[in-house]
């Protein structure tokens, strides 16, 4: 639920509340990661490093459901809908455009919630490895999760052999999104 203010407030105030709504979303990704079978058997250092490099990408997948590519609008969990044009005032136009494209592609695959959750687990453990100490353990966890994702998807769609590879092709898209946009600025009011 994002308490983004109605249009009447200044874009700085909208920006403050938009920045605030990232904090709970990040904490939810940390809790999600801890629920991934095998994640907590990684060293704490490697858990933290994976989360630092993968959380933005997991958030991008989670936020997809808020984006309506046809209407070019975003509906936050509190029910408030914003057109792409009005959100441009926040200065995140390029990120929003990229998000609409990405959510259109991912949305068109029609994944079930459990498939989406398993895909997010794969996204997290496929994140950048720089800083990881036990790369072998992370690669093993990634392999296990990819195998689980493949069998879940192919068991439900035995005659569709294209969906799984198409889904894996979203991983480089997410990495590009991350490289281009995770340096966007947030602003927090200091009272």
């Amino acid at each position: 639920a994002c308490p983004v203010a109605p249009a009447s407030r200044s874009s700085q105030e909208v920006w403050d509340s938009f920045s605030q709504c990232f904090t709970p979303a990040v904490r939810e990704v940390v809790e999600f990661a801890k629920s991934i079978p095998g994640f907590q058997s990684l060293s704490q250092h490697d858990q933290v490093m994976l989360l630092k490099s993968g959380t933005f990408q997991v958030l991008m997948v989670r936020f997809c459901s808020l984006f309506d590519a046809k209407e070019r609008a975003v509906t936050f969990l509190n029910g408030q809908t914003y057109s792409l044009a009005s959100l441009r005032a926040l200065g995140m136009g390029s990120l929003l455009d990229a998000m609409f494209d990405f959510s259109e592609k991912l949305g068109s695959m029609g994944l079930e919630p459990d498939e989406m959750a398993l895909f997010m687990a794969v996204v997290l453990v496929s994140a950048d490895r720089s800083g990881i100490v036990d790369v072998g353990a992370v690669e093993q966890l990634q392999e296990n999760l990819i195998k689980a994702l493949r069998s879940l998807i192919t068991s439900r769609r035995p005659d569709d052999s294209t969906l799984f590879p198409k889904l894996l092709l979203r991983l480089p898209d997410l990495r590009t999104l991350n490289n281009h946009h995770s340096d966007k600025l947030l602003a927090f009011r200091i009272d």
Binding site: F22, V48, L186, I190
Partner: peptide, 25 residues
């Protein structure tokens, strides 16, 4: 005037993760 602490999305995410793991130590 109110002052603002500005940080990147990536730094904000890192900060919350570090905080979360420190709290659960």
């Amino acid at each position: 005037p109110k002052t603002h602490r500005v940080m990147t999305l990536a730094d904000h995410i890192s900060h919350i993760i570090t905080q979360d793991f420190a709290r659960n130590q």
